[in-house]
Design a protein around this nucleic acid. Sequence first.
DNA 1: CATGAATGAGCCTTCATTCAT
DNA 2: GATGAATGAAGGCTCATTCAT
Lengths: 220, 220, 220, 220
Amino acid sequence: MQNLEENRNESPKWRREPKKRPNEILDGALIEFCSRGFAGARIEDIAKHAGLSKGTVYLYFDSKEDMLKALVGRSVTPIAQNMGDIADHIGEHNTSAAELLTNMLMMMAGRLSDDKIGAIPPLIIGEAGNFPELAAFYREEVIERAMKALKIVIEFGIKQGEFRKENTEFAIRTLIGAVFMQIIWNNIFVRTNEKKLPHEEFIRAHINIFLNGIVVPKEA
Amino acid sequence: MQNLEENRNESPKWRREPKKRPNEILDGALIEFCSRGFAGARIEDIAKHAGLSKGTVYLYFDSKEDMLKALVGRSVTPIAQNMGDIADHIGEHNTSAAELLTNMLMMMAGRLSDDKIGAIPPLIIGEAGNFPELAAFYREEVIERAMKALKIVIEFGIKQGEFRKENTEFAIRTLIGAVFMQIIWNNIFVRTNEKKLPHEEFIRAHINIFLNGIVVPKEA
Amino acid sequence: MQNLEENRNESPKWRREPKKRPNEILDGALIEFCSRGFAGARIEDIAKHAGLSKGTVYLYFDSKEDMLKALVGRSVTPIAQNMGDIADHIGEHNTSAAELLTNMLMMMAGRLSDDKIGAIPPLIIGEAGNFPELAAFYREEVIERAMKALKIVIEFGIKQGEFRKENTEFAIRTLIGAVFMQIIWNNIFVRTNEKKLPHEEFIRAHINIFLNGIVVPKEA
Amino acid sequence: MQNLEENRNESPKWRREPKKRPNEILDGALIEFCSRGFAGARIEDIAKHAGLSKGTVYLYFDSKEDMLKALVGRSVTPIAQNMGDIADHIGEHNTSAAELLTNMLMMMAGRLSDDKIGAIPPLIIGEAGNFPELAAFYREEVIERAMKALKIVIEFGIKQGEFRKENTEFAIRTLIGAVFMQIIWNNIFVRTNEKKLPHEEFIRAHINIFLNGIVVPKEA
DNA sequence: CATGAATGAGCCTTCATTCAT
DNA sequence: GATGAATGAAGGCTCATTCAT
């Protein structure tokens, strides 16, 4: 995660692309915020990740808090967009609701496997007390959208006679719970040299159970 | 899994059973840690919750960090114990695996509905960077135990012919994912005057799907 | 101005009277504000004058700005009070307006000869840009009161036939101008080892001219 | 008085006659120094007033301090020159000492009514602690010269039998006090939408009192 | 046991100054 | 000449921790 390469020789400050600067800083901020928490992260360390000095960071962000917000904002857009895209294609071709659900969860989990994106939810969880707006923002931009999309698909499945009529709200949460599990496990509880929960397989297994359950049918 | 034993012998200070006063302090610490994060919490505010002054806290805890550890320790013991209890009774009476799973999840979710206990996991998630030992401790004492218990039940169900043979590890995580969902939703993302996710109903619905899936059987 | 005595041996922190603390701090603030300006004064240096450490200052004042305001406030009360007292006694006994004016100016200049009080106006002048409220406050509490008192006396003198009818507003300012001169000269322009402008003599001479002018009467 | 000569030879950089650009910069510096104080003024803001960027300022001035000195230097020359001019004409024509005094004070007050010049003394007062040389310089270049000129006129008046023999040093200060009053009042204490002290009228009234006093002669 | 005044390390933030372009 | 990105010293303020009472 460190960009050791950049600090090579005396590559002078003004030679690097300034356009990428904010993003480079946010990369550093992500690392520090995640490993030290917002309060514990030191601006100087964040700057160092981008090969910059303390003061330079303030040319791009007004404050530490500003950086946190930008960081969350940056992670939100891509995932939020894809989410709706999938739901929009319901009924097109002849994709089953089951396939659509699989695609959606796969996409979510896939995106969140990217460290730059998956590290954000735990960060938000940790800072929810200090920055409730951040949690609210993330809920609206990501979680609500995902839920809405899942809802559409599940209701579509029910209408098609493909799914049983279950409490949709709870069903959605069961699906999303797996994503939470994956994120938190891989970012918080996995041991340093232990294999992470592979989203491809885990989500597929999860969907499978979601669809078919685990109980052996009474008369097969 | 390997250092379960170690911790038992060492009996670290943060697992001790404190008397009344320390507990009052920890109640205050919980409130402050959760709303401000570990770094943001001020000892003076914690003390105030217990009707004490700053200095007095130090008669009971060596440091702020010590308090965090004690806090987590305090929340761990009860839940960890119950966990095993249930798995121990497998095969007794003639409880089905399905019933056992329901009982276990219900118990977990029930406990974690208690704010004093449910607030801990988000706290740990937020401080995992600063205190990896805490996450490790919690994994070992709570999550691993829960998983082990769930595993036993699921394997019991499979052996009984009650459950299909699924990837047990993933199935366990699907179950636990719902608990994560419940905790995080209720502690982080729920809006101030919005109804919390009721664990009784949600967990029941979740288990139902887990057992039977949501797809309408081909030929019923 | 330094309190070298206090720092003697290891006289522990908690042994000194805490009641006097704020005043001691303000004494230090005065010294530093006057010699370095508000912005240039370092809290640590201010604290050192009172034999305290940086942090302790914040037990008594919320901020540097707070200290400045307290400092001005402290200097204002005594002078503002005396001012009115004198005007209140007009007509009592058979004091002439001339005597009253002399008493008033003498009192003002006398007070402002005390470094702790005379150093404030130049400070306000220097910080008027940053803290206009301070200048406004000082005008109202000190200058306006002084002017009002002088006005009463001068009008009394005119009514008595003791004074010629001059533009009172301007006359007042002529009187006060001398006080300004005295303050600014002694605090800003006087050389390090040059005699300060002695208010007793200077104000007396000034009043004398004010009363009688300097022109030799045409036919004496 | 003694180092008037020195300064003339040394011709310090801050008395140089800058070209157009530097003057524009100083105009900006004046505004910022006066409204924020020396320490509070930001080079970037000063530059903006002149339509320049931060770095450019350093092509014309070595440092912020250098700008302050240049600023004061710039304001000093014109007033200092006029001062002597008047005194030089004493005895020419048949101007009375009274008229001469009036002319001199009128000129001083008139000049200082120009914001660019009148804003300087309060600035010096505020920064006297940080830059005692500035106060000393101003005293020598402006105040001492004004005093010397006034002294000559007053002594001339006494010799002519036009003035009574008063303590000349004090009398001078009484005169100058009015100028101080005018500057400080108009630059510091006047309210935002309040009329400034009009130097024409105020100085005329002041001189009138100075010459004739305010007491009604005993037997007129 | 309890207090709270005092300490001082620590960090965010500002801004004069530099310098490659 | 002019620019503005970059630097880094400096200082206000916070707060965990100590300790005399």
